[in-house]
């Protein structure tokens, strides 16, 4: 594993940061002065959600996102560790498809949270 990876923040003038892949992005970006929202710091409350547009992260510890939000690219920065160079849109500006009116826009069975979702094939 590389000692550092490069994180690009598209809605922060494409600023780049060198961070450790072993620690959560919220910590390593905040240490370098990036102003980011956060709440619970254990992956449960969604306040720090950001949109990943390139690259991969390990966010197995998150429990906040449903599968639709994951498919829309959202990652939970307080637990997500980069697995290589990543490009992100951060902050509330990135939350355009994070929130939805649950009555107007229901989730399909496979879009629920991982612990209750039915795989798409099985639902057919």
């Amino acid at each position: 594993m590389a000692d550092t990876v490069t994180i690009t923040l598209t809605n922060r003038d494409n600023a780049t940061y060198q961070v450790s892949p072993r620690r959560p992005l919220l910590e390593t970006l905040r240490e370098q002065g990036v102003d980011l929202p956060w709440g619970c710091e254990y992956g449960g409350c969604i306040t720090c959600a950001a949109k990943l547009t390139e690259g991969e992260v390990d966010q197995r510890a998150q429990v906040a996102l449903n599968n639709r939000q994951i498919n829309n690219g959202y990652v939970i920065l307080c637990v997500a560790r980069p697995e290589g160079d990543c490009t992100l849109e951060v902050g509330v500006e990135s939350h355009d498809t994070l929130y939805r009116n649950p009555f107007l826009d229901p989730l399909a069975d496979h879009e629920l949270k991982a612990d209750i979702a039915t795989p798409k094939d099985a639902a057919r």
Binding site: I46, L107, K113
Partner: peptide, 16 residues
Amino acid sequence: APNTFMPGFDLEEVGH
């Protein structure tokens, strides 16, 4: 559970 209500309200989770 906090992990359920904090990220927002998914109506489908009521049925689950």
